[in-house]
Design a protein around this nucleic acid. Structure first.
Lengths: 206, 206
DNA sequence: TCAAAAAATGAATTAACCGTCATATTACAG
DNA sequence: CTGTAATATGACGGTTAATTCATTTTTTGA
C-alpha cells in the first residue's frame, strides 16, 4: 500500500479514515444511505460527529469516498483475474471465479454495490451515479472483448453481440450469487464453472 | 376490473386513489423514495396534503401500495404469457417477449422495480422487501419449472439446476433491457429471441 | 332551500438530522 | 514542567419534511 513511509501522524490519520469508512460501509449496506445518520456513523466508529467532518466535507462526500474506494478494489481484483495468461475459456473461468471470490469476501459491499449500480438515480448523489455507470460499462467492454476474441479465434460461436454476452454473463453471476446468498438452504452449490456452463453448453438438444 | 358496480362515490374514490398512485410512481421512479416529499406528491396529484392521508396511513403505506399494485400487474402479464399453450421453447419465447413488452410499456416502474428488487433493504420499508423477495422467488420457480419440464421431455440438456437457469435467464433479460435503455445508440437491436439464443445455442465450438 | 354529515384543506406541530463552532483535550517543543 | 499549537468534541442552530387537526368546502337528503 501507500502507507509505507509517511510521517507517523499521517499514517494514523489514514487508519482513522479507514475506520470511519469501515463503520459507514457496514451501516450503509445494512440500512441504505438515507437511513444512516452521521451520528450513527460517528458512534459506530467511536469518533465525535465533528471529527467525521475533519475527514470528509459532508455526508455525501463520505459516501462517495466509500463507494469509489470499494470500486477500485473490485476493479483491481477483476483486472488481475482477466489479465492472467490463457485462452478465452480460461480467461472467462478466471473472471467468474474472481467475481465469486470477491463476492464472498465482501458481502456487505455487494449489497451496496448492487443497489447503487442499478438503483434509481438520486439527485443527491448526482455525479456518482453517472461515474459508476461509466466505469461499469468500460468494465463490461473488457469482458466483451474476451468474447470477441473467442469468436475471432473460432473458439466461440457468435450466438449474440459480445457486449450483450458480457452483460448477460455478468448479471447471471450476480443472480446466482444473490440466490445463494438469500436462500442458501435451497441452493447449496455455488460452483463458478457451473455458471459458465450455462453459457458454454447450449440448452437445446440437437 | 372491479370498478363495475360500486356506488358512484366509491368509484370516484378509487379513481382518486389511482391518480395519487400515478403521481407518486412518476416521482418515486425519477427521484427515489427519500427524495420525494408528500407535499410534492400532493401537488402533482392536485390534492391537499391532508387528502393523501385519507387514502394512505402514511408515506410508507402509500409506497407499499404502489409497489405491490405494480407487482400484481407485472405478475399477471407474465403469467398470461407463460400459460399460453405450447412446448417449453415456445413458453420461454412467450415469457421473454412478455418481459420485454412489459418493460417497454412501463419504463418508469421498471426503474423503481429494479431498484427495489435488489437494492439494499431499508428498515423503513421492512416487510415490503421481504414480501417482494418471496414473490420473486415464487415467480422464478414457475420459470424454473419450464426448464425442468423441458429437461424431462428431452428438449433441453441439463446444463445447470433449473432454478439457476431461470435466475440467469431472468437477470440476463434485465441486463439486456437496461443496456438498451441506457445506451440505446450503441445497442440498437432489442430482439427478445436473441436473448434466448444465448441460452439455447452454446457458445463453445464443438 | 337548508342544515347536518362527509370530505378536503393546508397552516401548525413535531421530529429528525446535517453541519458548525466555541470549548475541551491532547501532543509537543523548549 | 509549561505554554502553544493541533486535534477532538458534541451541544446547538437551522432546515427540511412527515403528520395532525381545526377550519372550510362540498355533498346529501329531507
Amino acid at each position: 500500500m501507500e502507507e509505507q513511509n509517511l510521517p507517523r501522524r499521517e499514517r494514523e490519520k489514514l487508519r482513522q479514515r479507514q475506520e470511519i469508512l469501515a463503520a459507514a460501509l457496514e451501516l450503509f449496506s445494512q440500512k441504505g444511505y438515507h437511513n444512516v445518520s452521521m451520528a450513527e456513523i460517528a458512534e459506530k466508529a467511536e469518533f465525535a460527529i465533528g471529527t467525521l467532518y475533519k475527514f470528509f466535507q459532508n455526508k455525501e462526500d463520505l459516501y462517495k469516498a466509500l463507494v469509489l474506494e470499494q470500486c477500485d478494489k473490485f476493479e483491481e481484483a477483476i483486472t488481475r483475474a482477466i489479465e492472467q495468461p490463457g485462452d478465452e475459456v480460461e480467461k472467462l473461468q478466471n473472471y467468474v471465479r474472481a467475481r465469486v471470490e470477491r463476492f464472498l469476501n465482501n458481502l456487505s459491499f455487494i449489497r451496496l454495490f448492487l443497489a447503487e449500480r442499478r438503483g434509481a438515480s438520486f439527485n443527491i448523489k448526482a455525479g456518482l451515479d453517472e461515474e459508476l455507470r461509466q466505469r461499469y460499462y468500460k468494465f463490461l467492454e473488457r469482458v466483451a472483448s474476451i468474447f470477441e476474441d473467442g469468436i475471432k479465434n473460432r473458439r466461440f460461436k457468435k450466438t449474440a453481440d459480445p457486449y450483450y454476452l458480457a452483460a448477460a454473463l455478468d448479471s447471471a453471476i450476480d443472480a446466482s450469487l444473490l440466490l445463494w446468498l438469500e436462500v442458501p438452504e435451497r441452493h447449496p452449490d455455488l460452483d463458478p464453472d457451473a455458471i459458465l456452463g450455462i453459457f458454454f453448453n447450449g440448452l437445446l438438444e440437437s
